[in-house]
Simulated scan of single mutants.
Amino acid sequence: MNLLISKWGNSLAVRIPAEYLRHVGLSEGDQVEASLTVDGGITLRAAKWDRRAFAEEIAHKRDAMPMTEPVIDELRRGAR
């Protein structure tokens, strides 16, 4: 199926037929992952939220943060 690229605000958009969306189980507001293929194509896939992967990512980022003195302690010292 050929689809038309249209202007949407300052961006460009492609309308996906409702039949396609129903077939893959997507609806308005769902997120998709876009990737480029080696032959110059664009692939869209439903972006499934993985709770475990999200928790691991947050834990990794938290562990990478430097531990410093609590801000409240700095404020208390400055108030004295």
Rank of each mutant, 00 (worst) to 15 (best):
L21C: 15
Q31M: 11
G29Y: 01
T68M: 08
Y20T: 11
M65R: 12
T68K: 10
K48F: 10
L26C: 15
L4N: 14
S6H: 10
A18P: 01
G25F: 04
I42K: 04
S11F: 07
I72N: 10
K61N: 13
V14L: 10
L75C: 07
A79M: 11
W49Y: 13
I72F: 08
D63G: 08
I72T: 08
I72E: 11
N10L: 13
I5C: 09
G78I: 01
F54I: 06
V71T: 13
R62D: 06
L44Q: 03
L44I: 06
E57I: 00
D30W: 00
R51M: 08
L4F: 10
A79Y: 05
D39H: 09
R22I: 10
I5Y: 02
T68G: 13
I5L: 14
A79C: 03
R62N: 13
M67G: 03
Y20Q: 07
A18C: 02
E69Y: 00
I72R: 12
L21H: 03
V24G: 11
I5P: 07
T37K: 11
E28M: 04
W49A: 15
A53T: 07
D39L: 09
K7G: 12
V32T: 11
P66W: 00
V71Y: 07
R76G: 05
I72G: 03
D30T: 01
L12K: 12
V14D: 01
W8P: 01
A46I: 08
V71P: 01
D39T: 12
D73S: 11
I58S: 12
E56T: 00
H23I: 02
E56L: 06
S11I: 04
R62L: 15
R15T: 14
D30Y: 04
V32W: 02
R22E: 08
D73N: 14
P70A: 10
K7F: 01
T68W: 02
I72A: 15
N2D: 11
V38N: 12
R52D: 14
V24S: 08
E19N: 11
D39F: 05
L75F: 09
R62Y: 05
V24R: 07
R22P: 04
R22G: 13
